[in-house]
């Protein structure tokens, strides 16, 4: 065990480079988070409009998802040092993780399908959006405080 640990140990020559790498990852994560927040606030402001541009909002949400994946990559590869491990070992973690692609795809489609079935009584009637006796443009819940 100690042999492995010493193999991972960093001599003083690489010390500064390693510390620099850690702080660089920190700044990248911080900047990505700030961009995400800016995009989140953009959605908030776009949503205030009487007829929000739903396509644009969906696009921004997609960008936020990609930024989140980038953050996850930085945390795993730099902070958790997985980028420095043996390739085969990384694959034993990476390959099972690809199941998530299927999980997300299938379960979200399932939820969406369930909504359509409920809205149309399993396709027996067209969907009429219920605007609950509220005059458009509707106020958001909680806007009063």
């Amino acid at each position: 065990m100690s042999a492995i640990t010493t193999a991972h140990a960093i001599d003083t020559h690489h010390d500064d480079a390693q510390v620099k790498r850690i702080w660089k990852a920190f700044w990248v994560l911080l900047i990505l988070t700030i961009i995400e927040l800016a995009l989140g606030l953009t959605i908030y402001n776009l949503d205030k409009a009487a007829t929000p541009n739903e396509t644009l909002i969906l696009g921004i949400k997609g960008v936020i998802c990609i930024l989140t994946l980038a953050k996850a990559f930085y945390i795993i590869s730099i902070f958790m040092h997985l980028g420095d491990e043996v390739r085969n070992f990384v694959l034993t973690l990476g390959i099972p993780a690809t199941l998530f692609i299927w999980f997300i795809f299938v379960f979200i489609f399932d939820g969406n399908s369930f909504r359509n079935l409920r809205n149309t009584d399993a396709g027996s009637r067209p969907y009429i959006e219920q605007v609950q006796q509220q005059p458009a443009p509707a106020m958001k819940a909680g806007e009063k405080n």
């Binding site: 949503d47 998530f100 999980f103 379960f107 979200i108 939820g111 959006e129 958001k140 819940a141 806007e143």
Partner: peptide, 27 residues
């Protein structure tokens, strides 16, 4: 991560199955 993934995906599935969710910016 699969435990957390299951929770979050279940949440996503329920959100997609409803016409309205809450607006997190106001909550």
């Amino acid at each position: 991560s699969f435990t957390f993934g299951a929770f979050l995906i279940s949440y996503g599935s329920i959100r997609f199955s409803l016409n309205r969710w809450v607006d997190h910016n106001y909550v």
